[in-house]
């Protein structure tokens, strides 16, 4: 029982990172129907920013200063990526060139990391000490990632239901053409959605930097798990991404504990298949009617 609790605590920690990637997927998906497959490497870039700006034994002060800087930097980068991705598209939901564009962005980021950082995995130390919980020493970045996931979930919920801009993005998610006919500046809001996803993934990468692999080739694993989290939860649902991320994290950790590390990824993908077979719209997704 004690072992299971330890595994679940660590699973929730890494699962929170997957949930944050899932939420950043949703922000862009809701506004444009685009799945940004560069999100994994964007997370790594957030971690790399932490590596570059934080000293080897960082204090809490600089950490709080650079956290918003990382989020803003990634927001700017994602806005540029969004602009370039949307540039050739008349309608992002009818054309699929974004698939290549976002994958290309991921490959380019990986290549740039390789050129400037080499192949080594960078290490970042957390200014916050680990703490004991349920018989295990929990790395503070796990707890902070979970907290960050909850904060972003709350903020996004408020944004989509209370803020005028958020309501406009929600309108785009429901009917892009109707939103455009109503005078909503769709293209601008879609770029804004890219920037918001940058805020999420930039802050996530910075906070989780001590517990993620900051390397040129590690982004793929994170985007895969974030995607699985988003799909299991239901694409477009932030609650789904939150629950899906935690589920993926905890189940993959439990699989490693029970069946062995070689089954860690296989089990999370099996979970994806099982959920899609039973509930194709995901745990919290809504089935969408389609005119044929």
């Amino acid at each position: 029982m004690q072992d299971a609790l330890i595994v679940l605590v660590h699973g929730a920690g890494i699962g929170a990172v997957f949930a944050l990637i899932g939420m950043s997927f949703n922000v862009v998906f809701n506004s444009s129907g685009i799945l940004n497959f560069a999100q994994g490497n964007m997370l790594v870039l957030g971690g790399l920013f932490a590596f570059l700006v934080l000293p080897s034994s960082p204090g809490i002060g600089p950490w709080f200063v650079f956290l918003p800087a990382s989020a803003l930097l990634m927001a700017a980068l994602l806005a540029v990526q969004g602009y370039l991705t949307l540039l050739p598209l008349r309608s992002s939901v009818e054309q699929h060139s974004w698939l290549i564009t976002t994958l290309a962005a991921s490959v380019i980021i990986g290549a740039v990391l390789l050129i400037f950082q080499g192949t080594a995995q960078q290490t970042v130390r957390s200014p916050f000490p680990s703490f004991w919980f349920l018989g295990t020493r929990v790395p503070a970045p796990y707890a902070l990632s979970l907290l960050l996931a909850l904060v972003w979930f709350g903020l996004l919920r408020w944004f989509h239901t209370r803020a005028l801009t958020g309501l406009a993005i929600s309108a785009i998610a429901q009917d892009l053409d109707a939103a455009r006919a109503a005078g909503i500046r769709v293209h601008r809001l879609q770029i804004l959605a890219f920037a918001i996803s940058g805020l999420i993934v930039g802050s996530a990468g910075f906070v989780a930097a001590p517990v993620i692999a900051i390397a040129n080739d590690s982004g793929v694993s994170y985007v895969l798990h974030g995607f699985v989290a988003a799909v299991i939860g239901g694409l477009g649902s932030d609650l789904g991404a939150l629950v899906g991320g935690l589920l993926v994290g905890m189940i993959s950790m439990y699989a490693a504990y029970t069946y062995g590390g070689e089954f860690q990824d296989a089990v999370s993908l099996a979970l994806l298949v099982a959920v899609l077979m039973g509930r194709p719209e995901g745990l919290f997704g809504r089935p969408a009617a389609r005119r044929v």
Binding site: V7, V211, A213, G261, Q264
Partner: peptide
């Protein structure tokens, strides 16, 4: 006996099994 994948950062579940 336990395994992990390249670039894994948390081997806690595998080690917990071995600790038993």
């Amino acid at each position: 006996v336990q395994q992990y994948q390249y670039r894994a950062t948390d081997m806690t579940p595998q080690l917990l099994t071995l600790k038993r």
